[in-house]
Simulated scan of single mutants.
Amino acid sequence: MDSKSESQRTLYPYVTGSSVVAIKFKDGILMAADMGGSYGSTLRYKSVERLKPIGKHSLLGASGEISDFQEIMRYLDELM
Results as ranks from 00 to 15, higher is better:
residue 1 M to W: 08
residue 1 M to R: 15
residue 1 M to P: 12
residue 2 D to P: 12
residue 2 D to G: 10
residue 3 S to T: 09
residue 5 S to D: 10
residue 6 E to I: 11
residue 6 E to G: 04
residue 6 E to T: 14
residue 6 E to F: 07
residue 7 S to H: 05
residue 7 S to I: 09
residue 7 S to M: 08
residue 8 Q to H: 05
residue 8 Q to N: 04
residue 8 Q to D: 10
residue 9 R to F: 09
residue 9 R to K: 13
residue 10 T to G: 14
residue 10 T to H: 05
residue 11 L to H: 04
residue 11 L to R: 06
residue 12 Y to V: 07
residue 13 P to M: 00
residue 13 P to K: 02
residue 13 P to L: 00
residue 13 P to T: 04
residue 13 P to W: 05
residue 14 Y to P: 00
residue 14 Y to H: 13
residue 14 Y to Q: 14
residue 14 Y to S: 12
residue 15 V to P: 04
residue 15 V to G: 05
residue 16 T to F: 00
residue 17 G to W: 03
residue 17 G to M: 08
residue 17 G to E: 02
residue 18 S to H: 03
residue 18 S to L: 02
residue 18 S to R: 11
residue 18 S to D: 09
residue 20 V to W: 01
residue 20 V to A: 01
residue 20 V to P: 01
residue 20 V to T: 00
residue 20 V to K: 00
residue 21 V to I: 08
residue 22 A to S: 12
residue 22 A to F: 03
residue 24 K to G: 13
residue 24 K to R: 15
residue 24 K to E: 14
residue 25 F to Q: 12
residue 25 F to W: 05
residue 26 K to V: 06
residue 28 G to Y: 05
residue 29 I to H: 07
residue 30 L to M: 12
residue 30 L to G: 02
residue 31 M to H: 01
residue 32 A to W: 03
residue 33 A to K: 05
residue 33 A to G: 01
residue 33 A to H: 00
residue 34 D to Q: 08
residue 34 D to N: 06
residue 34 D to H: 05
residue 35 M to H: 10
residue 35 M to W: 07
residue 36 G to K: 15
residue 36 G to D: 07
residue 36 G to C: 12
residue 37 G to Q: 05
residue 37 G to E: 01
residue 38 S to I: 04
residue 38 S to C: 14
residue 39 Y to Q: 09
residue 39 Y to G: 11
residue 39 Y to M: 09
residue 39 Y to L: 15
residue 40 G to S: 01
residue 40 G to E: 09
residue 41 S to Y: 13
residue 41 S to M: 13
residue 42 T to I: 13
residue 42 T to Q: 12
residue 45 Y to C: 05
residue 45 Y to N: 10
residue 46 K to P: 06
residue 47 S to T: 14
residue 48 V to R: 04
residue 48 V to L: 09
residue 50 R to N: 06
residue 50 R to H: 01
residue 51 L to P: 02
residue 51 L to I: 02
residue 51 L to H: 02
residue 51 L to F: 06
residue 52 K to W: 14
residue 52 K to F: 12
residue 52 K to R: 15
residue 52 K to A: 14
residue 53 P to E: 08
residue 55 G to Y: 00
residue 56 K to N: 13
residue 58 S to E: 06
residue 58 S to Q: 14
residue 58 S to H: 11
residue 59 L to D: 01
residue 60 L to M: 07
residue 60 L to I: 11
residue 60 L to P: 03
residue 61 G to S: 03
residue 61 G to A: 03
residue 61 G to V: 04
residue 62 A to D: 01
residue 63 S to W: 03
residue 63 S to Q: 02
residue 64 G to K: 07
residue 65 E to L: 03
residue 66 I to F: 06
residue 67 S to W: 06
residue 68 D to A: 05
residue 68 D to Q: 09
residue 68 D to W: 01
residue 69 F to H: 00
residue 69 F to E: 00
residue 70 Q to F: 08
residue 70 Q to S: 09
residue 71 E to R: 09
residue 71 E to M: 10
residue 71 E to T: 14
residue 72 I to P: 03
residue 72 I to W: 02
residue 72 I to N: 01
residue 73 M to I: 14
residue 73 M to N: 11
residue 74 R to N: 06
residue 74 R to F: 03
residue 74 R to H: 11
residue 75 Y to V: 12
residue 75 Y to S: 12
residue 75 Y to I: 15
residue 76 L to K: 07
residue 76 L to F: 04
residue 77 D to Q: 11
residue 78 E to S: 14
residue 78 E to G: 15
residue 78 E to L: 07
residue 79 L to Y: 11
residue 79 L to A: 15
residue 80 M to W: 08
residue 80 M to Y: 06
